[in-house]
Amino acid sequence: MISTDSKRGRIALSVAHCAGMLDMVALPVWVGTLMANYRFDPQQAGLLATLFLIGAVVASLLLASRFNRLPRRPLVTLSFLTSAIGFGVAALASDFKTLAGLHLLCGMAAGSALSVTHGTVALSANPHRLFAIINMALGVVAIFYLGVTPRLVAQWGGTALFGVFSAAMALAALVCLFNFPHAAALPSIAPGAAKAGRSTAVPAPARFSAAVWFGIVGVALVALVQAMTTSFVERAGIDRGFGPQAVAGVLIALGVVNLVPAPLAVLLERRLPARRVLLCAPVIQAALAMTVMNATGFPIYAASTAVFVAVIIFSHTFAFGLLARLEQTGRALAATPAMLMIGAAIGPVLGGTLVKLHGYGAIGVAAVVLAACACWCFSRLPVQATPAAPGVPA
């Protein structure tokens, strides 16, 4: 049996995470391509990306509460295969209604796979560390995606974008078919039973605590700011006259920088209280969003854009580990796609509406308001919820 902490299990979880979290790295090129190649306005382009994310949210909400009863490997494999087929069909389509339906379908399929993936990670011996590992993989994929996809789109048009998406989903389906951790190899959870690998027996509660809910809402708000900003960071740079090649270089730099936060989160796991990290993250994120969307000079635009996504990668690693300690059945973190994408689903269409009505600067103002709400939510988390002491599973 393949376990969550085996090499094959970690590879499968990393590949599944990268495919399922496609929106995290794809949104700048995704929305930009829909505007430039399909001639959709910002609101329409944002809505298509939003439909993918809504599908992922719905799937995650439906599956999270049933996580411990799901046939994990078959479900993940079939979900990614469905998404691969959907994006393959999207590569041949051009009208808005067809693309809208396919985005929704692919989102539901990818969200189903990602929900099971994150719930499985939550049941590992050290969720904080394993989540950081799969985010490192996402950082590597981001460099490749942001370096290659814009060139393919420039040469082949929007078909290339959806072709890349389809190939990524198909690869994930193949890898998970043979390597995704078996249910029998995972710690079992039953009311009143201890979770394997934990130092104490923790009953599976019927409902989440208030602290867990505040953490979930806070993560969703941070994800909203991230999606709202990154969806239009490419177009903002090009519309200010920085040039496609210069902006593409910034996106590649963004991918390189994204390699740093996950290993840094591992190194600082027992040195920084998770609650303090989560209180600081929205403030930094809002400041960067305001800078990116109002920058008139290329250096400040490039520097702010390059580090923007790194903030959520670093802080979400701490949030994942903290929530795994507060809610140890895996159900809350099986809803991770919903946490991230319920905010991210609103982000592209909200950002597009703000840009259409008030210009790019309005995104920065909205980011500040949402950051204040996220900080309030994270302030409700327990002060003592710090990383586990050495030798104790997180």
Rank of each mutant, 00 (worst) to 15 (best):
M1L: 09
M1R: 12
I2Q: 07
D5E: 14
S6D: 13
R10Q: 13
V15E: 02
C18I: 15
A19Y: 00
D23N: 10
D23I: 13
M24D: 15
V31I: 02
G32M: 00
M35R: 12
N37E: 06
R39E: 04
Q43E: 02
A45N: 03
L51W: 11
F52G: 11
L53M: 14
G55W: 08
A56L: 10
V57F: 09
L61P: 02
L61R: 03
R66G: 13
N68R: 15
N68D: 15
L78P: 01
S79I: 07
T82L: 06
V89E: 05
A93N: 07
K97G: 07
L99A: 09
A100D: 06
H103S: 13
H103L: 02
L105F: 13
H118C: 13
G119A: 09
P127R: 07
H128G: 02
L130I: 06
I133T: 15
I133C: 00
V140I: 15
V141D: 01
L146V: 07
G147K: 03
P150Q: 04
P150R: 00
V153T: 08
A154Q: 14
Q155V: 01
L161V: 09
F162S: 05
G163S: 04
L177N: 11
L177R: 15
F178K: 09
F180T: 04
H182M: 03
A183K: 10
A185P: 11
A190Q: 13
G192L: 06
A193N: 11
A196C: 09
R198E: 12
S199Y: 06
A204V: 14
P205N: 05
F208S: 12
A210I: 11
V212C: 07
G215R: 04
G215Q: 07
V217H: 03
G218V: 12
V225G: 04
A227R: 04
M228T: 09
T230W: 01
F232L: 02
F232H: 01
A236P: 01
I238E: 06
R240C: 04
Q245I: 14
Q245R: 15
A248L: 04
A248G: 09
V250F: 07
L251V: 08
G255L: 11
L259H: 14
V260K: 05
P263R: 07
P263N: 08
V266Y: 08
L267Q: 14
L267P: 07
R270F: 02
L272T: 13
L272H: 12
R275Y: 08
L278S: 09
C280A: 15
V283R: 05
Q285C: 14
A286S: 11
L288F: 15
N294H: 09
A302S: 10
S304Y: 09
V307C: 08
F308Q: 06
I312N: 14
F314R: 07
H316Y: 14
T317Y: 02
A319C: 12
A319Y: 10
G321D: 03
L323K: 02
A334C: 12
A345F: 11
G347Q: 10
G347E: 09
L354D: 03
K356D: 10
G359V: 05
I363Y: 02
A367C: 06
A367Q: 11
V368A: 11
C373A: 15
P382N: 05
V383C: 03
V383F: 06
V383R: 10
A385E: 12
P387Q: 00
G391S: 00
